[in-house]
Write a protein that binds this DNA or RNA. Structure first.
Lengths: 221, 221
DNA sequence: GTCATCATGTAAGCCGTTACATGATTGC
DNA sequence: GCAATCATGTAACGGCTTACATGATGAC
């Protein structure tokens, strides 16, 4: 799951260093991938060892030195200039030795595997993450992803309903079970709309067929 | 989370052995607690060590001994007789040495602590489990549980909305974020109805007040 | 000169899983 | 006699978290 998020981000947003990866994951995908450093850095090391990413030590080619410093006469002014020069010299870096990571071809292939996620966990986060990166998937695989998820949820719904069928449950347990069923149906409905959108996008003839316009528009409630 | 499920089950359904605990958890609470033996048995041992449960070796009052064994002369025959005698001797059990667990007073106190779950994880399973056992909680604690959960969800909703506010998201990422917000609102609405029901149950005067009947009825959609 | 932020990493621990080992009992 | 089910446990591993260690840089 973490690997998928890292690779996806590197693929979409270009080369990044660890700290930045975490920041962007938190900001962009919020709850789907709010990862801690304690898992992020080992994950990056693992991916590098596997050849899925390359790290450059971020000793990037230094910019040509800035124009000579006009003395200001004030000490704090000189200081400020020195600081800014140092910043200018290491421009684009600003900070510590930052290891910048870039996704490799092997990484892209791994990303594709994780994205289809045949043997992946069926938790909502994992699915949400895969769907969030679904534009990197060919259309049929995308549809398959959605339908596999739909199948999982309907199976779980059946389970929940058999659990709810027994009447040994008190008010609170009943409320929980009922709400689980409700939420599952809500999710399934959402998937159905997504699937419908995918299907109509996959058959471009539909847009040309008479009367098809109504079916195409307004997919996402 | 596991401890809570075990203690709750032992409290509600009386004394049980490990195998049965797992069975009932799977059947009754389904997705909330489908636990594996690999975690269940260590958990029971832990709870026993902590004094939260007592185990009786299931050497329940033995039936009067069967008639003396007539020797058959064959070794396997003797064996078979020994086995069947053992079976007869331990009548009502039928199977292996089953350790039957019973919740203690310390266990009940621990259960109450876990149920209020002040420092517990905020994942849906954990909350669902606590709510499912909420009838063992005093009414104010129950209300507090619901309101704490509501607060968490509204905070997360705000997070999701700030994440969704940026327009760097493509169709799929957007769909995921939007649906997360949607599902959160759905959950919050459900909590609101539960809270409302709790509140009106907590103020018995309300039922007597004129015109209050409409507010009380039909809480749970 | 001190505090917040940026930046990378290690160590320990939590909470669960699957797989393995063992064995009794029942039903066919 | 063989498979399915009942019953208890151990071992190894997974994937994540928190806490800790370290240090540079920037802002005031």
């Amino acid at each position: 799951m973490l690997d998928l998020a890292i690779l996806g981000l590197l693929e979409e947003r270009g080369d990044l260093h660890g700290y930045e990866i975490r920041k962007q994951l938190r900001e962009g995908l919020g709850l789907l991938a709010n990862v801690s450093f304690g898992s992020l850095y080992p994950a990056l090391a693992r991916l590098e060892a596997a050849g899925a990413v390359e790290a450059t030590e971020a000793l990037e080619p230094v910019e040509p030195p800035a124009a000579p410093v006009p003395p200001t006469g004030s000490l704090s002014g000189e200081w400020a200039v020195l600081r800014s020069r140092r910043r200018a010299t290491r421009r684009g870096r600003g900070r510590r030795s930052r290891k910048v990571y870039r996704i490799t071809d092997r990484g892209r292939s791994l990303f594709a595997d994780l994205l289809t996620g045949q043997g992946a966990a069926d938790d909502p986060r994992s699915f949400g993450l895969r769907l969030a990166f679904a534009r990197h998937l060919p259309a049929p695989a995308r549809l398959a992803l959605l339908e596999r998820r739909r199948l999982q949820l309907t199976e779980r719904l059946a389970e929940v309903r058999t659990a709810g069928g027994q009447d040994a449950l008190d008010v609170y347990a009943r409320a929980v079970v009922d709400h689980m069923a409700d939420a599952l149906q809500h999710d399934i409905g959402w998937l159905d709309r997504l699937i419908e959108t995918e299907r109509s996008a996959a058959t471009p003839g539909a847009a040309l067929a008479p009367g098809a316009t109504a079916a195409v528009g307004g997919g996402a409630r």
